[in-house]
Amino acid sequence: MENDTNSGNTYHKIKTFDQKNWVSENLNYKKDSGSRAWILHRISGIALVAYLFLHIYSISPLTQGEVAFNNKMQTYSSPFFMVVEWFLFAFVLFHALNGIRIVIVDWADGAKYHKQLYRLSWVFGVILFLAMGAIMFAHELKNLF
């Protein structure tokens, strides 16, 4: 009992497999900013790779000359695609800002303040996202007001 405060005594806390909630208690990642950043970085990364393939496909009509390309671009300039592009920018923003955070954590002792960096990247991200929306939809916004 006198060893209870020592670090070597954690074995008692490990649950066994037949416990009902073992998976959710032991195999779930702690829902903290670090793991949220990790999973969001992955999701946005996968989405951006998918978009990169799509992007090469979407600009390939450049080889078919001016008319074909301009026609394709006309469809991509529709409001629907613009909103999609806007949300694509959200993915780019998160991945870029969190990527900078990762580099700071790796190379600039950022592990000490990675949570603050995570919050800061969200602040910058939301500001830039809204700013991009204002730039992209400047014409539509002018018509609204």
Partner: peptide, 18 residues
């Protein structure tokens, strides 16, 4: 992004790309 969205025409017309 500056090139493609600050002036939307610059990214979306063949003439601009050319």
């Amino acid at each position: 992004y500056i090139l493609m969205h600050f002036q939307p025409e610059s990214g979306h017309t063949y003439a601009a790309v050319l």
